[in-house]
């Protein structure tokens, strides 16, 4: 049973483009468990324009991660629709979804998730390799440079600090020029100073690259850096604060 229509949140682009990068329309997501179905998202509507840096906050289990997954075309909504850069995900096949992801979505994780057997540069170029790019190295090095780690290209991940690893992960997430970057607790495993620098990096990316960033976070230092804060509870958007 869906709750009455809550605030459908719309946050258009800064620039004048009409089409939101990400649009969730009355999205419902249910998970079937052993006991009874769990409603992770309950009638959520959200629109975010290009180049916006949005934070998603809420307690564990409020539905942030689920929202991110749906936004990244990693999963299908039970009800409603997810539209990524004008493309609705509900009528896509598996290969088409994969292709959509390859073009439009980048992920950053709390635990960095770098492959330990690949070098830094190899980690960054991995999405391009997976998509079949013939010469991904120049692009990877460029991204590394943009996060300030060009000289670490040949190191192995276990030689880096946590902050450095997350920067590499961000470079990796951007190497294929996605429209939207989805970050799940990107500073969760970092100390506050390093965490802040990562947030500033993200801020810079969203404005310089015009990349929409949707970030789920507990970090309290974000308020000054993001464009909007979406508070969620029990699968619904509770509150939206725009700066």
């Amino acid at each position: 049973m869906s709750s009455p229509d809550t605030s459908s949140f719309s946050f258009p682009a800064q620039s004048g483009s009409r089409q939101p990068t990400l649009s969730l329309e009355s999205v419902i997501k249910d998970y079937t468990t052993e006991t009874e179905p769990v409603r992770a998202l309950d009638n959520v509507s959200l629109q975010i324009g290009t180049g916006r840096f949005v934070a998603l906050v809420g307690r564990s289990g409020c539905g942030k991660s689920t929202l991110l997954h749906l936004a990244g075309a990693m999963d299908f909504p039970t009800g409603g629709r997810v539209v990524l850069d004008g493309v609705s995900t509900d009528r896509l096949t598996e290969p088409e979804l994969t292709q959509l992801r390859r073009e439009k979505v980048g992920f950053v994780f709390q635990s960095f998730q770098l492959l330990h057997t690949l070098s830094v540069a190899e980690n960054v170029e991995l999405p391009l390799l997976l998509a079949g790019h013939a010469h991904p190295r120049p692009g990877a090095l460029e991204q590394l440079a943009s996060v300030g780690l060009a000289d670490l290209a040949d190191r192995m991940p276990h030689q880096l600090s946590g902050g450095q690893m997350q920067r590499v992960a961000i470079a990796r997430a951007l190497v294929h020029g996605p429209r939207i970057l989805l970050a799940d607790e990107p500073t969760g495993n970092l100390d506050s100073v390093t965490g802040n620098s990562i947030l500033e990096l993200l801020r810079r990316i969203s404005s310089e690259h015009n990349t929409t960033i949707l970030m789920a976070t507990h970090n309290a230092e974000f308020a000054s850096l993001v464009d909007a804060v979406v508070r969620m509870r029990d699968g619904r958007i509770e509150e939206v604060a725009v700066r």
């Binding site: 992801r101 492959l115 991995l126 999405p127 997976l130």
Partner: peptide
């Protein structure tokens, strides 16, 4: 399996 999951997130097709 986490690594494989990650690869999917990074754009790998399941056939890959």
């Amino acid at each position: 399996r986490r690594e494989f999951g990650l690869l999917r997130f990074l754009g790998a097709a399941s056939s890959q």
